[in-house]
Amino acid sequence: MSARTIFSLRGVTKTWAAPDEEFQLSIPRLDIKAGQRIAVLGQSGCGKSTLLDILAMTLEPTTSKAFRFEPETGNSTDIHEAWSSRRMDRLAGLRGRHIGYVLQTGGLLPFITVRENIELPRRLCGLPVNGVPRALAERLKIGDQLEKLPATLSVGQRQRVAVARALSHEPSVVLADEPTASLDPHTAAEVMELFVELAAQRNITLLVASHDWARVTELGLTRLHHEQVDEKGVLRSEFHS
């Protein structure tokens, strides 16, 4: 496995001030190596989604000492600097090319077909379609749904489409936020298994937020360290490698 560190975060925090208490997500030190497959575990509300959003560069940290992203060897970007100089289109460009994101539900564009949804990240990157979306759809058992609109699919099928879309442009990293939480246990197990398998085959770095500890250890994911402390009215949730 490559020794390249794809995400490197130091002293990154995100704070919300609620009326009665303050919540803080804290990432004192996090290094994620390329090809690692990691589970982000914790009960809901502990900041798993926030962590993934910060890694996906869709949410600006409140503070950060260092935040680097190196999706390819020798191609490293200072995300801390990009946020502070408001280079939003640079962040969007990195996200579009190197990151796939699977949301808990939805996130598909309702007005284009399943096939077009899966193709969209490839088209955005200027990659040829080359049958990749079809192959992914076949693997995820939605090959016969390609010409339908997302609204006509079941929730389980839609999550498969979301997985296919996240993988379609051959990204370096895929982030998934409880991708199977809204599915029945049997379907959830099948989709998660396929998802991890497809990512492993492509040597994609994977971070999956989940509350199902048993499931993710079965799939061979590494658990991210997590502690929660109540500190003078500040609820602090800490993730570190």
């Binding site: 289109d89 969007a92 579009g96 996130g107 007005f111």
Partner: peptide
């Protein structure tokens, strides 16, 4: 808003 956010998430530049 939601569709616009999805497009942002996919990496389309805001501009």
């Amino acid at each position: 808003r939601r569709e616009l956010s999805v497009l942002q998430l996919l990496g389309f530049p805001s501009s």
